[in-house]
Design a binder for these strands. Structure first.
Lengths: 213, 213
DNA sequence: ACCTGAACACCGTTCAAGT
DNA sequence: ACCTGAACACCGTTCAAGT
């Protein structure tokens, strides 16, 4: 009979539980409320307990970002025309982020290291490659889509034209910003969905032209 | 002879000097180093002295953002074909931000309230309007351009494909992210200038198609 | 009127101590 | 091995006091 190794005390937390708690705090109290102390309290453990699972606050943020993005389905839709495939993939990210808007300010800084976003990027590239993009053309296409999706989602949630900012802009001095005021008024007729989709369609049309020639 | 009002002691600072000092700190020490204490030290005044010119840290950040964006020429280029006009305006913002990359993380939060960005938006709309865009089509065009410019500039400086991130991505497990690895390798042949311009051209082509029909 | 320094209520994180 | 609380070095900001 072998000597039984002394059982180490089981860890009381899991990365998943930590991520859930941090996201709950973020949703409830916003980014300013997301502190190590608050997450500790949310879990009923000491603040310092978190450091057993996470090296620092930065890693906690990465965990929250991943918790949000991990939900997006990253299987490439290859059974539809490629523009529809791109629309579908872009829409999935937009939808996942829309469920937790407080995470938006964290996205730019943590995008690189997110496995979920990497999987999503691979899916976008699968669709683009199937469509016929290669080499530097594919690089530009991919970067443009990524840039647009990142920027548009941010605009939607930290909104200038859409959302609460619209009214403020529509009230701008008409003599100094006549076109901006007019455009803000017109913006009322365009929902956030159409705004996101409309801009994406512009990009997709531009991409389609590259494929023709 | 009138009684001379007691001269109030002249203010020792100006908003411009404050903005300059804050930008100098930001350029030197990065966003984490931009503190009220550091800016006070930079000016040789007390920390609390700043509060006479700025309500809080948020306003200090807005001042820095404005200091960077105020340099962009916002006269609409109406003497060239409209796509060139848009390229020119987008390039000016990109150039101004490129001179102070540490300001990038501050842009999304302070974009709305920046007079410089409003003037820039007015110029973009002038070009678009001259090109023939109106109503909701103009709204979508404007928002798409804004979203792309914001997103692409952010990508360039917090970079995923371009910059230091590229090498990391190129070293990804080839079996899990084959297309991402391939694309990152191809990205070496595309400079940041071409990447920004190439994506913008896609958008402009899409916009041109809207005008034809 | 303008500026200052001490003090307060927070942070993230180090570290020695508990079980 | 795992968890804790006190303590440290920072923040932004309030407030009473100085000239």
């Amino acid at each position: 009979m072998y000597a039984v190794k002394a059982m180490p005390r089981p860890r009381s937390l899991t990365p998943a539980r930590l991520a859930d708690a941090a996201l709950a705090v973020l949703d409830r109290d916003g980014l300013a409320g997301l502190t190590m102390r608050a997450v500790g309290a949310q879990l009923g453990t000491s603040t310092m307990g978190l450091y057993r699972y996470v090296a620092d606050r930065d890693e906690l943020e990465a965990l929250v970002v991943e918790r949000v993005l991990d939900r997006v389905d990253t299987r490439p839709p290859l059974d539809v025309p490629w523009p529809d495939g791109v629309r579908e993939l872009a829409g999935r990210v937009r939808h996942a982020v829309g469920a937790h808007p407080a995470v938006v300010p964290l996205l730019p800084a943590h995008r690189h290291r997110s496995p979920a976003i990497l999987r999503w990027g691979e899916a976008v590239l699968a669709v683009l490659t199937r469509a016929g993009f290669t080499g530097t053309g594919r690089v530009v296409a991919f970067r443009a889509l990524l840039g647009y999706v990142v920027g548009a989602i941010q605009m939607e949630h930290l909104g200038a034209l859409a959302g609460p900012g619209t009214a403020a802009i529509a009230a701008l001095p008409r003599d100094e910003f006549p076109l901006l005021a007019e455009t803000a008024r017109d913006a009322g007729a365009v929902g956030p969905e159409d705004e996101f989709g409309g801009g994406l369609d512009l990009l997709l049309d531009g991409l389609a032209r590259r494929l023709d020639t």
